[in-house]
Amino acid sequence: MHPFTFGIYPGSALGAEDGLLIGLPDIPERIQEALNDLQPDGKSFRVRAYIDRDNVQGSTPQHFEQYIAPNRKLDLVLCYRAIDEPFELWTDFIRRTIQQYGPNLATLQITEEANSTGPGGDGITPNVRAALVAGVLAAKTEIQRLGLPIGVGFSATISFNPADDFWTELGQLGGQSFVNALDYVALDFFPDVFVPLQPNVQLSDAVRAVLHQFRHVNMLQAGIPATVPMHIGENGWPTSPTRPYTRQAEVLETIIRTVYEQRETYNIACYELFDLRDANSSNPDIFYQFGLLRDDYSPKPAYGVFKELVAELSV
């Protein structure tokens, strides 16, 4: 049976149009309660966390290692925002991170959305593509040296632009050694959030179209074969005064079931939801309301739906 693992980002900080958005302070005990509740007995589950080398103290969620538990490890994202500095500082940081957190890592993501200059994307950094390749190679070498079972990959957003050179340049920069070092590539996508669906388009059809484009067009342009698994690194649907809680639950169920149904077709091994809790439930801006929980940790309908899907579909 094709392996399929779930995870979630439990922090309150996120990238928004005006930069990093910091929500209300986390309550670790409530986060731990929710993670314990969402993770089925005996099944693997992942906690997504982010670190920036230039601001390690600003990791989100803070002190993320406290959320590690039996069968629950980290999907740790190393963001890259450095400009005009030697890559040795970047690769040294990657090696130190592996040495520090290695036994608690399920996966290590090198850069965050290196092809995106939008909210939260590392594509704003001029040399990020070369940093991505150098980082993946350095991470794989260190993981193999230590004999650790950690998957190495990177994330990207979907591109339908034939003039976009991100994927072809990535393949040229990295070559076969880069492709051989990859254990997965993560897709971050938010259908019907930043670009509303057209009235005649079904959500499930839109999801299938994105998965097809990412696997059979984007990844292939970099020479990444179908044997390298895809992950869903970030996916969610925020609420607001015009985006009802019930619709959030419906959208997430449709997306997750569609991804799961397509897992064999596109070699998808993991789905991680963004995110656990609203940054601020009283703020009508959608960036503040991506959570399955309100900012007081009370559940929206989508929380129960996600919990049931994780229990049903975890393989």
Rank of each mutant, 00 (worst) to 15 (best):
T97D: 02
I98K: 08
Q99H: 05
Q99A: 11
G102Q: 10
G102V: 12
P103T: 04
P103N: 02
P103C: 01
P103M: 05
N104K: 13
L105A: 09
L105W: 06
T107V: 05
T107R: 13
T107K: 09
T107E: 14
T107M: 12
L108E: 15
L108T: 14
Q109A: 11
I110A: 05
I110C: 07
I110Y: 09
I110N: 11
E112P: 02
E113L: 08
A114Y: 15
S116P: 00
T117L: 06
T117H: 07
G118F: 02
G118W: 05
G120D: 08
G120M: 04
D122Y: 00
D122L: 01
D122I: 03
D122C: 05
G123T: 09
I124V: 15
T125Q: 12
P126A: 13
P126N: 10
P126V: 13
N127Y: 11
N127I: 07
N127Q: 14
V128I: 15
V128Q: 08
R129E: 15
A130F: 03
A130D: 13
A131P: 12
A131G: 08
A131W: 10
A131N: 07
L132V: 15
V133I: 04
A134R: 12
A134G: 14
A134E: 15
V136L: 03
L137H: 08
L137F: 07
A138Y: 02
A139S: 05
K140C: 05
E142A: 03
Q144W: 00
Q144P: 00
Q144H: 07
Q144E: 15
R145D: 09
R145S: 11
L146C: 00
P149F: 05
P149T: 09
I150K: 00
G151M: 10
G153A: 06
G153F: 01
F154Y: 14
F154S: 13
S155V: 10
A156V: 03
I158S: 07
I158P: 03
I158R: 04
S159G: 10
S159R: 07
S159H: 03
S159P: 06
N161E: 15
N161C: 02
N161M: 08
P162F: 00
P162H: 02
P162K: 04
D164P: 13
D164A: 09
D165A: 13
D165V: 15
F166A: 10
W167S: 05
T168V: 14
T168A: 13
E169V: 09
E169M: 06
E169R: 11
L170D: 11
L170R: 03
L170C: 06
G171V: 10
Q172Y: 06
L173T: 08
G174Y: 02
G174I: 07
G175A: 06
G175E: 11
Q176A: 14
S177Y: 01
F178M: 11
F178G: 05
V179H: 02
V179L: 09
N180G: 07
A181L: 14
A181P: 13
A181W: 08
L182Y: 03
D183S: 09
Y184C: 04
V185R: 01
V185A: 01
A186F: 02
A186E: 06
F190L: 03
F190Y: 15
D192T: 03
D192K: 02
V193G: 01
V195M: 11
P196Y: 04
